[in-house]
Design a protein around this nucleic acid. Structure first.
Lengths: 327, 327
DNA sequence: AGCAAAAATGTAATCGATTACATTTACATG
DNA sequence: CATGTAAATGTAATCGATTACATTTTTGCT
C-alpha cells in the first residue's frame, strides 16, 4: 500500500501537489497532473481516509439508531438515508439498540470518540437526556419518534391525525366496538396514536372502554398475536381492531385466522406503516402509509446540514390511509 | 473537546502516561493514575479514534455486503455479526448493493481507502473477480453465498442437501408433480438448490419437467407471486411447489390464496430460510431452517481472525426441515 | 528584455493518538 | 551509603493526509 509520499517522490513533486491532484484542485498544470496520475496508477495508490479524517477532524460516518432492524418499517427510511448519505460521501453505521442501554451507550461513544459525525435516532426507547446533552456538541436529528421542546430537530408525521383517520374509517363502516393494540405509553407516538383513537371515538359519541385498550411491551408479530388472544377472550368482543403497527396487526390477524374467524366480516382490522407484508396477508391489510423513503432522505439532509453548522427546521410529513381487504 | 495534550498538561504528566492510563496499561503508579483520571474527568476527555486509527492503521470497521436489507433472512445473520463485532470493539457498516455494481464499488473503495478493515460478503451478485483480487490485500469472508476455489474462506450450509430434503419430503407425501421456483442460475446457491431438487426427483424415478422450473430475476414477494401465476396457468398443474426462499413462497402463497385454492390440499408449498413471517401466514409455511445467528457469529469471528493474520478454515453448517401446515 | 501579476509548486506545521527507546526515580541489598 | 535493578515516566518519531504560507515559475505586456 503506497502512501502519498511515495507517489510524490515517484512523480518528482511534493506531497502537496499530489494531494491537489487527488482532490481535483485546478491549480495544477496539466503536465504535472499527468505525471502524478501516472505515479498513482503505477503504485496503485489509494488515499487513506485515516490520514485525511484525522486532519479534517471528521469521520464521514453517520450513526443511525433504530430499535431493531426486524421491523420492515425502517427499511425504506434506511434506504432514503443511505441514498443521500452516499451521494454526499458519507456512510451509515446502522445501530440496533434492542432497547439495551448498554448497547446504546456503546453507540453514543462512537460519536463522542469522533468515530461518527452525527446521529439520526429513530429509537423511541432512546435515553433522551443523554441524547439532548450529546446534541450540545454533536449533530443530532430525530426521525419518526421525536421529543417536543428538546431542541433536537426532527422529521415525522402527524401520528394523532393518522390514527384519528384510521379509527374514523372504522366508525364510518359502522363499528363502535373498536379495540386498540398499542405499545407502551412511555413512547410519544404511542400516546399520540392513542389520543387520535380516543378523539375519533369521542367525536362520534362512542364512550371509551378501557378494556378495549391493550398495551404490548414491544412491537413484534408475537406481541400482536398475544394481544389479539386477549381481545378475542373479551366478553363483549369488539368488531374491529386498530393496531399501531403492521407487525402487531399481522400477528393479530394470524390469531384471528387460526381461530377460524373471518376478517373483515367477524372482525375488521387496521394496521399502521404499510410494510410490504401487509399486502401479502389474507386478507390484505388496511393501513396507514407513511412516506418512509422521503422521511429518510430528509433526515439525512437535515443531519448533513446540521453537521455543516447550518440551522435546521423540523418537518412534519403527510400520511395516507390505504384501504384494503381487512376493512 | 479536549485532546490528550491538554489532559497531560493539566495532570502534569506526559502524553505517553495519559495514553497508558487510557489504555489500561499497568506500568503507571496509582498516584499518577489518579491524577490523570481526574484530569480526564475534569476536561471531559474522550480519546479520539481518529488519531488512534491513523497511528494503528486500522479503522475498526467491518463491511457487511448484502443484496438488500429487505430480505429478513439476513436479519439474524446481521445480529450475529454485530454481537461478535461489538464484543471485539468493531463496528459494522451495513452495505446494500441492490445489485448495483456502482454502489458495490463505492463500498469496495471503503476498504481500499482503509475506512474498513475487512468485508463479509453475503451478496450472491457480488463481482467475484474484484472480490478475489481485493482478498489479496484485505481480509474477506463470504457468508451464505460463496465461491468454490476462490481462496476466500466462507461459512454456509449444504444447499443441495437441504433442497434435496425439502423435495423428498414432498415426494413422500405423495406428490410427483412438483414445481420449483428458483432464482437466477448464475448464483451458486440457485444451482445447488436446483441440483438438490433434481436429485430428489431422480432418486424416486420422477422425470424432470422443465416446464415446472421457474426462474425469478430476484428474490422478493412480488417475484414469487408472478412465478406462481405462471404455475397456476400450466396445463398439468403441479400439486406441490418448492420455492428457494420464503419470500418467494409467501408471494406464491398469496397468489394461491387469492385464487381461492387451498394449501396444502390443492397445492403444497415449501419455502427456504424460516423467516419470522413464514410462521404468520395462513397456513404456516414448511421451510428449511438455517442457523442464521450462528452463521453470523462465525463469519464475524472468521473475519476478525483473518484481520489478525490468522489462517481461517471454511465451515459448512447444518440445516433443518421445519414441517408446518403448508405440506 | 524587463517586470509585475498570476499560476504552479514546495515547505513545513498540523490533526491526536501510540510506542520504541531513553531517562529518571524508587527500592533492595550488601 | 553506594550500587544495581526494576519500576515509572518522559521524549520524540510516526501514522498519512491537508493546507497556510512561502517560494519559484510562467505569462502577458510594454
Amino acid at each position: 500500500m503506497a502512501n502519498i509520499q511515495q507517489v510524490a517522490s515517484l512523480a518528482g513533486v511534493s506531497v502537496a501537489t499530489v494531494s491537489r491532484v487527488v482532490n481535483g484542485q485546478l491549480t495544477v498544470s496539466p503536465k504535472t497532473r499527468i505525471k502524478v496520475e501516472q505515479a498513482i496508477k503505477k503504485l496503485n495508490y489509494e488515499p487513506s481516509m485515516l490520514g485525511r479524517n484525522l486532519r479534517t477532524s471528521e469521520s464521514r460516518i453517520l450513526l443511525v439508531l433504530i430499535p431493531t432492524i426486524s421491523n420492515p418499517f425502517y427499511l425504506e427510511i434506511i434506504r432514503g438515508i443511505e441514498d443521500i448519505a452516499i451521494s454526499q460521501d458519507y456512510n451509515i453505521l446502522l445501530c440496533q439498540t434492542d432497547s439495551n442501554p448498554e448497547r446504546e451507550n456503546t453507540y453514543f461513544n462512537l460519536v463522542r470518540k469522533k468515530m461518527a459525525d452525527g446521529i439520526i435516532s429513530m429509537d423511541p426507547a432512546v435515553n433522551i437526556e443523554t441524547l439532548v446533552s450529546l446534541s450540545e456538541n454533536h449533530a443530532i436529528i430525530q426521525c419518526s419518534e421525536y421529543t417536543i421542546d428538546s431542541g433536537i430537530p426532527f422529521v415525522t408525521i402527524d401520528n394523532e391525525g393518522a390514527s384519528f383517520r384510521a379509527v374514523k374509517h372504522l366508525i364510518k363502516l359502522g363499528h363502535n366496538k373498536i379495540a386498540l393494540i398499542n405499545t407502551d405509553e412511555k413512547y410519544l407516538y404511542a400516546r399520540q396514536r392513542q389520543m387520535g383513537y380516543q378523539k375519533a371515538l369521542e367525536e362520534h359519541g362512542i364512550s371509551i372502554n378501557q378494556d378495549y385498550i391493550f398495551h404490548t411491551k414491544q412491537i413484534g408479530l408475537e406481541y400482536g398475536q398475544q394481544a389479539m388472544k386477549k381481545i378475542l377472550n373479551l366478553e363483549k368482543r369488539p368488531t374491529a381492531v386498530f393496531a399501531v403497527s403492521d407487525l402487531l396487526a399481522i400477528g393479530a390477524l394470524k390469531e384471528i385466522n387460526s381461530l377460524g374467524l373471518k376478517v373483515p366480516n367477524d372482525i375488521a382490522l387496521v394496521g399502521f406503516d404499510q410494510i410490504d407484508f401487509s399486502n401479502m396477508t389474507n386478507p390484505t391489510l388496511t393501513t396507514i402509509a407513511q412516506p418512509m423513503y422521503k422521511m429518510g432522505t430528509l433526515a439525512a439532509k437535515m443531519l448533513i446540514n446540521k453537521i455543516k453548522g447550518e440551522k435546521v427546521e423540523s418537518i412534519i410529513l403527510d400520511h395516507e390511509l390505504v384501504i384494503r381487504e381487512s376493512t
